[in-house]
C-alpha cells in the first residue's frame, strides 16, 4: 500500500491521532448505538424502580443468582472488548494477520459468554423459574435475554469484520466499517457493565 497522509503511522505506532476530532466509524451506526442505549436505559430504570417497590423480594431473588457466573461473563466481555480494540489498533498499523487473530479472540470470548449464560438459563429453567415466577425474574430473564440477543448479533458483526480483515478490506486507509462494528461490540460490553452491578451485585 502506498504511504499517504491517510495511511502514515503516528509516532506512537498508531493511525488514530491524525483523526482530528472526527467520529470513528459511520454516523448512522452511532445513531443506532444511541437508540439501543436508550432502550436499555428504559429497562434499567424500570428494574430499579420496580426493585424500590419490593426490595425484600428483589434482594432475596438476587441471592438465587450465580454471581460468579455474572462476574465471569463480565471478564469475558471486557476481554473481548480488549481483543477488538487490539484488532482495530493492529489494522491501523496494517498488521492484518495479527488483527484477524485478535478478532478471533474477541469472538471466542463472546462465545464463552453465551455458553455461561446458556448454562445459567438452563439451571434456572430446570428449577422451574419462568417469566411469570415473580417481578424479579420477569426483569432478570427479559433484560438478560435481550442483552443475550445483542451478544449474538455482535458476534455476527465480528465474524463479518474478521472475514473483511482476512480479505484485506480494512487497512489504515479504510477503517470506517471496522470501527463501526467495533463500536457496536463495545456498546454490548458497555450495557453489561451497567447490567452486572444492577442485577447481580447491588442490594
Amino acid at each position: 500500500m502506498p504511504i499517504t497522509p491517510e495511511t502514515a503511522l503516528a509516532p506512537d505506532g498508531t493511525h488514530r491521532p491524525a483523526r482530528d476530532g472526527s467520529l470513528p466509524g459511520d454516523l448512522a451506526v452511532w445513531i443506532f448505538i444511541v437508540a439501543e442505549l436508550l432502550v436499555f436505559a428504559v429497562f434499567f430504570i424500570s428494574y430499579a424502580i420496580a426493585r424500590g417497590q419490593d426490595v425484600v423480594l428483589f434482594d432475596a431473588m438476587q441471592r438465587t443468582l450465580d454471581r460468579n457466573a455474572g462476574a465471569a461473563n463480565t471478564l469475558l466481555l471486557v476481554t473481548s472488548s480488549w481483543c477488538v480494540a487490539r484488532a482495530v489498533a493492529a489494522t491501523q498499523q496494517n498488521l492484518t494477520t495479527v488483527a484477524a487473530r485478535w478478532l478471533l479472540g474477541g469472538l471466542a470470548c463472546g462465545a464463552g459468554f453465551l455458553v455461561i449464560k446458556a448454562l445459567e438459563y438452563a439451571a434456572k429453567f430446570s428449577a422451574g423459574v419462568s417469566l411469570s415466577s415473580n417481578n424479579f425474574y420477569m426483569f432478570y430473564l427479559s433484560l438478560t435475554f435481550f442483552h443475550f440477543l445483542h451478544v449474538i448479533l455482535g458476534m455476527v458483526v465480528l465474524a463479518v469484520l474478521w472475514q473483511g480483515i482476512r480479505k484485506r478490506r480494512y487497512h489504515p486507509g479504510n477503517l470506517s466499517g471496522l470501527e463501526s462494528g467495533a463500536a457496536y461490540w463495545h456498546m454490548v460490553d458497555l450495557v453489561w457493565l451497567v447490567l452486572f452491578p444492577l442485577i447481580y451485585v447491588m442490594h
Binding site: 472488548s81 480494540a85 470501527e179 467495533a182 463495545h186 457493565l193
Partner: peptide
Amino acid sequence: GTAVIRDYMGLRGV
C-alpha cells in the same frame, strides 16, 4: 463505562 466509551469506542477527543 467511561474507559470503554472514551478509549475502546474511540470517543476520546472526538
